[in-house]
């Protein structure tokens, strides 16, 4: 069996669960989740988008591929479920895609990567009304809120989300991601604690910054020190 991105893309488009999963599992023998998400799954999904643009596949095939990819992602998360933190364990992160947004795979990958780093993660897939999200945030008080959107005409919606976040009685870190971050500059509309994430590499960079900045807090929490 060939393990290239192209083979994986074809397996997704054919709806071949078993083959897609076994390709990912083979990669998993040698690579980290981050590497696989960044170098296999993301390029494959971009390739599928390109094929639709080139009129090679239909939206129905695209949806099928998304469903298979979702299944594969869920499997890569499986061994992380063992670590299930208490509801109030910190650090907490909440991820969701904006209302009516069906491009959720990116957000799902991000939420799994946070979980891998032993964050207490809540992840809401597709179609959660704004009020529900806000209620959850007010009650659970996550330190990081991540959202993503991929469709241009929802950019206005983003502004209203960000406005709502700035009205919270505490200051969470806000991460905004999605395909459009590549093409448009949204940096003017976010409050100061907002970071726009274009791709998984930027997320990794953000992680390192975050850990660096919060090292003293983390040391305090764990009763360890980084001085010695």
């Amino acid at each position: 069996m060939k393990l290239t991105i192209n083979n994986f893309t074809d397996a997704l488009l054919q709806g071949d669960h078993a083959k897609s999963l076994s390709i990912v599992n083979k990669w998993r023998d040698n690579y980290t989740r981050f590497y696989i998400y960044n170098k296999l799954i993301t390029p494959a999904m971009y390739e599928i988008g390109r094929r639709w643009q080139a009129n090679e596949i239909s939206v129905a095939q695209e949806h099928l591929a998304t469903a298979v990819c979702d299944f594969v992602l869920t499997q890569t998360e499986h061994d992380l479920v063992r670590y299930s933190p208490a509801p109030e364990a910190t650090p907490k992160a909440l991820f969701f895609t904006v209302e009516d947004e069906h491009h959720y795979l990116g957000m799902k990958m991000v939420s799994i990567l946070f979980r891998e780093k032993q964050w207490n993660v809540k992840y809401y897939q597709s179609n959660l009304p704004v009020d529900h999200v806000m209620n959850e945030i007010v009650q659970w008080k996550p330190g990081v809120i991540g959202l993503s959107f991929s469709i241009v005409h929802r950019a206005n919606g983003l502004t209203s989300y960000l406005k709502k976040f700035s009205e919270l009685d505490y200051e969470p870190e806000i991460l905004v991601g999605g395909r459009l971050m590549n093409q448009y500059d949204f940096s003017s509309i976010g409050p100061p604690n907002t970071t726009f994430i274009q791709n998984l590499e930027e997320l990794d960079h953000w992680f390192n910054q975050y850990t660096e900045n919060r090292r003293d807090d983390l040391d305090g929490d764990k009763d360890t020190t980084s001085i010695i």
């Binding site: 639709w52 643009q53 080139a54 009129n55 469709i151 241009v152 005409h153």
Partner: peptide, 10 residues
């Protein structure tokens, strides 16, 4: 839709 312009043209 703006994202479909290139496809339309092509």
């Amino acid at each position: 839709d703006r994202d479909s312009h290139t496809k339309l043209k092509n």
